[in-house]
Amino acid sequence: MTKKFKILPLVLLVSGAVNAATDHPWYAGARVGGTNYDNFDKALDGAESNFDRDDWGGGVFIGFQQNDWFSVEGGYTYLGQADVKNGSGGVEVQGVDFVGKFTWAASPVVDLYGKLGGFIFDVDNSVLDKDDKGVAATAGIGAEYYFNDSLSTRLEYQYYHQLGDTAPGETDIHFYGVSLVYHWGAAAPVPVIEPEPMSEPEPMPEPTPTVTKVPAISVNLPFAFDSKSISPEDIALMKPIATRLTEYPDSKLYVVGHTDARGTDAYNLKLSEERAAAVAQYLKGHFGLTQDRIVVMGKGESEPIAPNDTAAGQAKNRRVEVYTPGFELRN
């Protein structure tokens, strides 16, 4: 296979991958790097020294993020060719990856991950004029750095185990390279609105039998570290407030996000605003609230309710305060 035909499927798949999905949370990327053919076996056993076993490789992939720590990926990978040193031809491998990706957030902008899955391979042995197709195991590790919410880069290593069969021979292949990944599909955030200054309440007149006081309702929603996801437990906690907003169309909703003290002030302020916006977006979408009834703000780490020097205190400070002020109904 000539070099231009090696590149052709790569270009076609890139153009298809970046337009293949529109819903959150999808991502697509391309990778390029080096390959090394190792551990020849069966028909190729003992022939390592006859081959130039280093080449280039690359591919494209598309993935879907299931949750904070797991995603699935699939894509095309070209693993280069081990050329015969004193002759023509060689062993060339390409195929399709299907892997699970397991992620650990090392910092707000860096993820460490591992991959495990299968590789549907196509081995072209032009030395023996034989081809082989099949499935092999693959695994890898890497680190991913996020420039922003839409763009990241990866540095990774991936191992492919015993590609080929007895007639054309088998080989392990090591891939090491870099990737550029584009993420898209996030829902439009609820705009953060600065609350109007609250004036001192004027003294209320003595209640009369025709006045009904409706008390304020408030709840604190806990959040996991560096998370802005709403859990089913959070939704259950918000039911009384949702009922209030439905029963009284003139009532207002205040959503205030907070974080613990880990991370920079700027990052924590942004995270607190995103937490508050996520809660407001849910209530707005599920109960038909108009935007003028919602006040959303983030306070970052500036208003802790517990010490930040213990894990228990940090957990209390990672919260979103949701409340509707009390008011009076005159009959």
Rank of each mutant, 00 (worst) to 15 (best):
Y160V: 00
A143T: 06
R318V: 10
L10Y: 13
S49I: 00
D309Y: 14
P209Q: 11
A261P: 00
R319K: 14
Y37D: 03
P222C: 07
D149M: 08
A139T: 00
A167Y: 04
V84F: 11
L79E: 11
A20M: 10
M238Q: 12
F5S: 14
I141V: 15
E303K: 12
A315S: 14
G95W: 03
D234C: 08
T103H: 05
I235T: 14
Q162R: 10
L271G: 03
D234T: 02
Y159N: 08
S152V: 00
S231E: 13
I120K: 06
F40W: 02
S150I: 02
F175R: 06
N220H: 07
K101G: 11
G16W: 07
F119P: 01
S88D: 14
L79K: 08
V192P: 00
P205F: 02
M204G: 03
S231A: 15
S179H: 04
T310Y: 14
Y182S: 09
V192T: 06
I241L: 14
V190I: 07
R262K: 13
P249M: 11
Y37M: 10
I193Y: 01
S15P: 02
K115T: 15
G100M: 07
G90R: 08
A312S: 12
A17T: 02
V32K: 02
N67I: 07
S302T: 10
N268A: 09
A278Y: 01
S218D: 13
I305S: 13
P168E: 07
V91E: 04
F223Q: 09
F51V: 11
A236T: 12
R319D: 12
D172Y: 05
I173D: 11
G100H: 06
V219I: 08
K101Q: 07
